[in-house]
Write a protein that binds this DNA or RNA. Structure first.
Length: 469
RNA sequence: CGGGGAGUAGCGCAGCGGUAGCGCACCUGCUUUGGGAGCAGGAGGUCGCGGGUUCAAAUCCCGUCUCCCCGACCA
């Protein structure tokens, strides 16, 4: 007798499937205030793994962590014209404090360019103080009318980097370096999500930036998700906040700046890129638990064998947990671990133990293999590596299958309804972007036709058009 | 803000004038345990809120609040 599916099948109703995964894998709940999110322990563990991997890469660029306040004087936001214009519709503003109306309202940070730069102005005096490379891990608030857990919430967690440089070229190079060495490397190597790196059009650019670079991924339904951005701010904020330094010749110059961020939205991207009808599928490099040793039944020394195996795997450096909840049925436990996307299950029970083997179950393929006890640690190691590769290859193949080259805007309108459409940027233009927007499509990014690196000029660019989250 | 729906147990819903219900989840016990266990028992509710009509309101009327879905911005 077939049970009802655990989740709404992905192909039936993708948004519903997404919500089911978030609920059943115990990732998050809606908060009491509309648009807010409670991140449950399992999703928070995933976020902590993301933080650890990113933080290491960020520090490798020379950036240091610091922390700036949640509250920002409203007047600070106004100092940069485009910035305030971009953010004012989604600001949360505090008008009362200590039981009294405040003389100047404070905003809850939607991003920290303004506060951080007001301190950069104090800290930067000389070219010897540059580059100044600061990162912070923080929560930010952007009031959202149409929230979706992880993808678009009123409050979210992120990392925001802010840097100041002596020259435009150095700032531009740093923004590219973050995009490539930190974000793209992390997304491809750890999340196993292939991303396109490119430039945003003026229409899609960050409010206050002179250039925005982006990592764009394709989700399981063919829609695009912006996974991270890195901005060149030019001297816009340096002028607004008077961040100047004396160069080697003693003349006063404004600094050139960057800012860059990735957020808990990546958790949503992870779900939608790798998830299947059985739930989440976590890439081994990211998974908080890489292997769960499942004790099927405790008879005939199986309990001891399972505990020993867990210890051996831990000793081998594998993130391992033991599931010996014998009061819960084996089937239910299997379903739970599949929902949570743990890459490997090692099932230990008396029946197979009698033959000196255990069952290795690979989440990424769904395969089950009998493995001799003595070989388990080795097999787990190679299977984790293979699983990581498999997820990246599968996601890459799916993206390629759903990407088409087109020559006209009309063709793009049609093709981008189910994936990515690539066409010359010269064919689109700002007028074309407006027409795409009418049909719910956007230019996700501009890439070089030859695929080599990030494009610096407007010439010979290819626009990638898609529906987006 | 414009259009369309819905508020009843933790979740999903039925009931639409006459004792507050169902499925899942939860608790207890027994039997189970190799792919969401079975049986028995149990707990859980100002039916969004305020007013009105009525012998009697979850149900009818008025008001109000909230939430969800579809159209313009965003990590």
């Amino acid at each position: 007798m077939a049970k009802a599916p655990v989740l709404t099948p992905r192909g039936d109703d993708f948004p519903r499937w997404y919500q089911d995964v978030v609920a059943k894998a115990e990732l998050a709940d809606n908060g009491p205030v509309r648009g807010t999110m409670v991140i449950r322990p399992y999703a928070y563990a995933i976020w902590e793994r993301m933080q650890a991997e990113l933080d290491r890469r960020i520090k490798a660029t020379g950036a240091e962590n610091a922390y700036f306040p949640l509250f920002i004087p409203e007047s600070y936001l106004r100092r940069e014209a485009e910035h305030v214009e971009g953010f004012s519709p989604e600001l949360a503003v505090v008008t009362h404090g200590g039981g009294k109306e405040l003389e100047e309202p404070v905003v809850v940070r939607p991003t920290s360019e303004t506060v951080i730069n007001s301190y950069f102005a104090k800290w930067v005096q000389s070219y010897r103080d540059l580059p100044l490379l600061i990162n912070q891990w923080a929560n930010v608030v952007r009031w959202e009318l149409r929230p979706r857990l992880f993808l678009r919430t009123t409050e979210f967690l992120w990392q925001e980097g802010h840097t100041a440089h002596a020259t435009e070229a150095e700032a531009a190079a740093f923004a590219e370096r973050i995009l490539g060495e930190v974000y793209e490397d992390f997304m491809v190597e750890v999340l196993a999500i292939p991303v396109l790196t490119g430039r945003k059009t003026a229409r899609e650019r960050f409010a206050g930036a002179s250039n925005t670079l982006t990592c764009e991924a394709m989700m399981g339904d063919g829609k695009a998700l912006q996974m991270g951005t890195s901005h060149e701010l030019g001297q816009n904020f340096a002028r607004a906040f008077d961040i100047t330094f004396s160069d080697e010749t003693g003349s006063q110059e404004h600094v050139w700046q960057t800012s860059w961020g990735v957020s808990t939205r990546m958790v949503g991207g992870l779900i939608m890129c790798h998830g299947d009808d059985a739930g989440l599928r976590l890439p081994p490099a990211l998974a908080p638990t890489q292997v769960v040793v499942v004790l099927v039944r405790a008879e005939d020394g199986a309990g001891e064998a399972a505990a020993t195996l867990r210890d051996e795997l831990v000793a081998a450096g594998v993130r391992t947990s033991l599931d010996d909840r014998l009061g819960t049925s084996f089937g239910r436990r299997s379903v739970e671990w599949e929902l949570k996307g743990v890459p490997l299950r090692v099932e230990v029970g008396p029946r197979e133990l009698a033959d000196g083997v255990v069952t290795l179950v690979e989440r990424h393929r769904g395969t089950k293999t009998a493995v001799a006890l003595a070989e388990v640690v080795d097999r787990v190691g190679s299977s984790l590596i293979e699983g990581q590769r498999h997820l990246l290859a599968e996601a890459t193949r799916l993206r390629e299958e759903r990407t088409v080259e087109v020559a006209t805007l009309e063709e793009a309108l049609d093709a981008a309804s189910s994936g990515f459409a690539r066409l010359p940027w010269a064919v689109v233009g700002e007028e074309g972007e407006r027409r795409l927007a009418e049909r719910g499509l956007t230019v996700r990014c501009l890439v070089r036709a030859d695929g080599a690196g990030i494009a610096a000029t407007e010439e010979d660019l290819v626009a990638v058009v898609a529906r987006a989250y």
